[in-house]
């Protein structure tokens, strides 16, 4: 077996670089000498900070993904999207209602949707984005919250939308409304929050705070989950 690392050629913002095959897009960036301060986060596919737009060789489609989860291929052309300057309305959760009126007031642009489905195609989380926008258009908050549940707010949907809708912010509103007004209240959760506030777990929390990363990680992965 040869020890030689197989390399592939990628185009980062139009500039050719040789990077190790099997790298993720983030690794490719860093290998090529870029220091990422924005457009990178947890590196585990959870935070949604590293939206990326890329095109594979021989494919006309511009694709969206998370730079920490997408592996480079030979001839790939790519760029990082560190931030989406999209509209974000301010609202008071205590003053809005979980129905169509809130959607009309805060996100009137959802009524510009043409059902092109470009948002769904762009979503790295495989969410039916168009479907949850349609649910919001109908005033179905619960359905929109459910469909958008896996959203990590990377912003690619909004960037590609021809109707300039800010899908991920509208989906967030739906989940907030659902959580506050529509979801069935859990007595167990309420009890546990009270226990924590009363200081019942003070000792355990303090222990965890002092733990090093390896130990904490081990504790996390071997935790017991009790289901009723």
């Amino acid at each position: 077996m040869s020890n030689k690392q197989e390399m592939v050629k990628v185009f980062i913002m139009g500039e050719a670089h040789e990077v190790p095959a099997g790298s993720t897009i983030i690794m490719a960036f860093e290998y090529a000498g870029y220091q990422l301060k924005k457009g990178v986060g947890c590196r585990e596919g959870f935070c949604g900070a590293c939206a990326t737009v890329y095109r594979e060789k021989g494919n006309y489609k511009l694709q969206g993904g998370l730079a920490c989860q997408t592996v480079v291929s030979d001839g790939m052309s790519l760029v990082q999207i560190p931030f989406v300057p999209a509209e974000k309305p301010v609202y008071d959760m205590d003053k809005i209602t979980p129905d169509i009126n809130t959607i009309k007031e805060l996100f009137p642009t959802v009524f510009r949707c043409v059902s092109c489905n470009t948002c769904t195609k762009a979503c790295p989380q495989d969410i039916q984005v168009m479907d949850y926008i349609q649910a919001l258009k109908q005033g179905n908050i619960a359905k929109a919250a459910d469909l958008s549940f896996d959203c990590i707010r990377c912003g690619l949907c909004a960037l590609r939308c021809p109707a300039e809708i800010v899908q991920y912010n509208a989906g967030t509103l739906a989940r907030r409304l659902y959580g506050k007004y529509l979801a069935k209240k859990s007595p167990e959760l309420k009890n546990r929050v009270e226990e924590i506030n009363d200081g019942k777990y003070k000792k355990e929390i303090q222990e965890m705070k002092e733990m090093d990363r390896t130990k904490l990680s081990e504790k996390y992965y071997t935790r017991e989950i009790k289901l009723k």
């Binding site: 009137p108 009524f111 258009k137 109908q138 005033g139």
Partner: peptide
């Protein structure tokens, strides 16, 4: 909704 979608 019907008025908003139509006008937009």
């Amino acid at each position: 909704q019907i008025a908003l979608v139509g006008a937009f």
